[in-house]
């Protein structure tokens, strides 16, 4: 038997709410990545291509 406290068993409603929240969080993080990328390109401007190869 585990010595750690077991997490509570979730009801159907709780599961649905948790899943919806996880999806929203995933979308938010994805949007943040895209925003950071676009803003970085906008900040760099033409210099984005200016690097030694």
């Amino acid at each position: 038997m585990s010595v750690y406290p077991q997490p509570p068993e979730l009801t159907q409603e709780e599961l649905q709410r948790r899943n919806a929240r996880s999806r929203a969080l995933g979308l938010f993080l994805g949007a943040l990545v895209i925003l950071f990328f676009i803003v970085t390109i906008a900040k760099l401007g033409g210099n984005v291509m200016n690097r030694p190869i």
Binding site: P8, R17, R18
Partner: peptide, 18 residues
């Protein structure tokens, strides 16, 4: 309706609540 005093409280919030 699904809150139970004996068990640990978990977050019920949806994205809309936040």
């Amino acid at each position: 309706p699904s809150f139970d005093k004996e068990r640990p409280t978990i977050a019920f919030g949806t994205a809309r609540d936040y």
